Simulated assay, not measured.
Amino acid sequence: MASDPKNFVFEDVVKHNKTKDCWLIINGKVYDVTPFMEDHPGGDEVLLAATGKDATDDFEDVGHSDDARDMMHKYYIGEVDRATVPKKRTYVAPADRSYNPDKTSDFIVKILQFVVPLVILGLAFAVRSYTKEKSA
């Protein structure tokens, strides 16, 4: 561990978001993982993707080994003031809009919502008529 741990505010930690200068926040602690960038088993992209936020969930979701957790001590440089860390945002879908992943225009979506059931119904009648003719 660092001999003189410091207290950081979130805004200062998130400035360290490059391969040659990378800090992470995990469980309220700040780690300078710059020396570990080339050695990280998941690659430096994984570490860079965890900058600019509280990376605790990212770290825990991977299921790091005890050895990995022990290794963290040498990168520890201080604590983050948790009051300065933004609250996690959760996505809230608009109530009046249906899910539209490919951004198709609303007009097209409404037409398809009307036309597709009619086409299916038409096919059902066609199949029914065809099977009646074959059996007669």
Rank of each mutant, 00 (worst) to 15 (best):
residue 5 P to N: 09
residue 6 K to L: 10
residue 6 K to I: 02
residue 7 N to Y: 09
residue 10 F to K: 02
residue 10 F to A: 02
residue 11 E to R: 13
residue 16 H to T: 07
residue 17 N to E: 02
residue 21 D to L: 07
residue 23 W to D: 05
residue 24 L to C: 06
residue 25 I to Q: 04
residue 25 I to M: 00
residue 28 G to N: 07
residue 29 K to Y: 09
residue 30 V to S: 02
residue 36 F to L: 06
residue 36 F to Y: 15
residue 36 F to K: 00
residue 36 F to R: 06
residue 37 M to Y: 04
residue 37 M to A: 06
residue 38 E to S: 12
residue 40 H to N: 05
residue 41 P to F: 03
residue 41 P to Y: 04
residue 42 G to F: 08
residue 47 L to H: 00
residue 52 G to A: 01
residue 52 G to K: 03
residue 53 K to A: 03
residue 54 D to V: 11
residue 54 D to L: 07
residue 57 D to A: 12
residue 61 D to R: 06
residue 62 V to C: 03
residue 64 H to W: 08
residue 64 H to M: 09
residue 65 S to G: 08
residue 67 D to G: 02
residue 68 A to L: 04
residue 69 R to A: 08
residue 71 M to W: 01
residue 72 M to F: 01
residue 73 H to D: 12
residue 73 H to G: 14
residue 74 K to F: 00
residue 74 K to A: 03
residue 74 K to S: 08
residue 75 Y to W: 08
residue 82 R to T: 15
residue 84 T to N: 01
residue 84 T to M: 02
residue 89 R to V: 14
residue 92 V to E: 12
residue 93 A to H: 09
residue 95 A to H: 10
residue 96 D to I: 04
residue 97 R to Q: 13
residue 102 D to A: 05
residue 103 K to R: 10
residue 103 K to M: 00
residue 104 T to N: 02
residue 105 S to D: 13
residue 106 D to M: 02
residue 106 D to W: 06
residue 106 D to A: 10
residue 113 Q to D: 15
residue 114 F to A: 14
residue 115 V to G: 04
residue 118 L to T: 04
residue 118 L to N: 13
residue 119 V to A: 11
residue 122 G to D: 05
residue 123 L to N: 14
residue 125 F to T: 03
residue 127 V to F: 15
residue 130 Y to T: 06
residue 132 K to P: 00
residue 135 S to K: 13
